[in-house]
Amino acid sequence: MQVNEKEFKPTIVAFCCNWCSYAGADLAGTNRLNYPADVKIIRVPCSCRVNPMFILRAFQRGADGVIMCGCHPGDCHYTTGNYYARRRMTLLFSMLDYLGIERERTRVEWVSAAEGAKFAATMNEFVETVTKLGENKRLEDLRCKEK
């Protein structure tokens, strides 16, 4: 597959919790705030639902960056879900970094239902960061890439 450096557009997977971040994304939409179409949102009931396997699978299937968004700590719809998620993702991202996967490819951001602007800004910034990094090579599955 030929990838033209100049035109590289990353694929971003964003796991968004149903109650805050997904609503935040919605708000960004209704407010006509721009963020790249390369961001694929996957709605989850709670950030706590995000299994480390989901993150890895996203990379396997061609994601160049994975971001998880949830309610702000303390505001979880299920009271404590995002606290657990926070510990998990901290450890997982640290491990990915330890294995030499570029740490900028993974990210957690807390976005409330009222923060449409933050959602758009976060995505813009994340896409920019990942674009600079280029294609995900270190955690790719070649079988999913060849056409």
């Binding site: 700590p73 303390g74 404590t80 606290y83 657990y84 926070r86 510990r87 998990r88 993702m89 901290t90 450890l91 991202f93 640290s94 970094d97 740490r103 900028e104 993974t106 990210r107 957690v108």
Partner: peptide
């Protein structure tokens, strides 16, 4: 176990960067 509990003041995942 540490993954079965939490603290409201836990570090953020951004500690990695």
């Amino acid at each position: 176990a540490p993954l079965n509990i939490f603290d409201t003041e836990d570090v953020e995942p951004s500690v990695v960067y």
